[in-house]
Every structure is written in C-alpha cells, then in structure tokens.
Amino acid sequence: MKVKKLLWIDDMEHWASSAARNLEMIASKYGVNLKVIWAVNGEEVLQILMQYDFDGVIMDFHMEPFNGDKYIQDIRNEDHLQHIPIIFYSQDNSADLSALVKNLRGVTTVYRPNLEDNIKELFFGE
C-alpha cells in the first residue's frame, strides 16, 4: 500500500479532523495509506516541513495570527519546498484566493466544501 503524507493546517480542528478521517477511509479504497499531520496554525509549519517528508500541504485561509497565504509564501521561499503541492482553501467563497498566490507556482485554490474532491484528485490519482 502506498503511503501518502499530508501536512494539514487549519484552526477548525473538529471540521478538519472529521474530514481527514473520511479521507483516510476513502484513500484506503484507492490503495493509499493516508497519513495526516496536524497544525492549528502556520507558525511551526516550516519546522515540521524540515523534520518530515510530505507529499503535500493542505492550508486553510482564515487563521490567526496570519492568514494561510503568508505561510505559503514562507514555504515557497525555502529552496527545497519550491515544488511541494499545496492546496489552499477557504470557507469564504468571496475570498479571491488565487489572487493571493498568483505569483506562486503549484498552489491549487479550493472552496472548502470541494476540498475532499481536490485532495482525492491530487493525491489518490482519481
């Protein structure tokens, strides 16, 4: 079974953990052993990314103390993280996420209810 590791940053823990549990079940149907590491804000993201190899980053938009786009910029500023796939999502469909990351390559912007489908497409090969 292939192992996929995602770093997921969201301050809404209940929502994110329930979504992840469902994704783990779905992933197993596709022969993928999905492992999710959590962070409730982006402050330690760079450190975590230094310690482990991840297949992708799932980043919420609205967070404290900074919004997710700030941390995405930090990630892309690291040489070895310039190509890691990132999904950037928000519950707020009035937020123009793509404008916030328009100069950064490899960032998929998603409306929160569609996140599950996008993760499946990007990481389970559906």
Partner: peptide
C-alpha cells in the same frame, strides 16, 4: 455556520 455544518456532514458521511 458553514464550518460547523460541514463538520456535522463530515461525521455523518463518516
């Protein structure tokens, strides 16, 4: 509301 409803939906889906 969207997030809380989404959490409920996720659990029911689970």
């Amino acid at each position: 509301i969207g997030i809380y409803a989404g959490t409920i939906d996720n659990n029911l889906k689970g």
